[in-house]
Amino acid sequence: MTETPSPGRDKRPQQVFTLAVEVGRKAGDGLPKGATGAGLLLYATGVDEAEAVREAVAVLKLADLAPLDVTGYGSLAEREAAGEEIDAEERALMARALAENAVIVAQMEPFFGEDRPAKG
Results as ranks from 00 to 15, higher is better:
Glu80Trp: 05
Glu78Arg: 09
Met108Ile: 13
Gln14Leu: 13
Leu68Tyr: 00
Thr45Gly: 03
Glu78Tyr: 03
Met1Ile: 06
Leu40Asp: 05
Leu41Phe: 11
Ala95Ile: 06
Glu55Phe: 12
Glu78Pro: 02
Tyr43Phe: 14
Thr4Phe: 07
Ala88Val: 11
Gly8His: 07
Ala52Thr: 04
Leu31Met: 11
Val16Phe: 02
Val47Asn: 00
Arg79Ile: 01
Val103Ile: 03
Phe17Asn: 05
Leu60Ile: 07
Leu42Arg: 06
Asp48Pro: 00
Pro67Arg: 11
Pro67Asn: 09
Leu19Trp: 06
Gly83Asn: 02
Met1His: 09
Asp87Asn: 14
Thr2Phe: 11
Glu3Met: 11
Gly24Pro: 01
Pro67Met: 10
Ala20Tyr: 13
Tyr73Lys: 06
Thr2Met: 11
Gly28Trp: 08
Arg116Gln: 07
Glu78Met: 09
Glu55Thr: 13
Leu68Arg: 12
Pro110Gly: 08
Lys119Leu: 07
Pro117Asp: 10
Phe111Ala: 07
Gly39Asn: 08
Val105Ser: 00
Pro67Thr: 09
Glu55Ser: 13
Phe111Thr: 03
Tyr73Val: 01
Ala95Pro: 01
Ile104Gln: 08
Ala118Ser: 12
Glu22Gly: 04
Gly46Pro: 04
Arg79Trp: 03
Asp69Ala: 10
Ser6Phe: 12
Val16Pro: 01
Ala95Gln: 12
Glu51Trp: 02
Ala38Trp: 05
Asp48Cys: 06
Phe111Ile: 00
Arg96Leu: 15
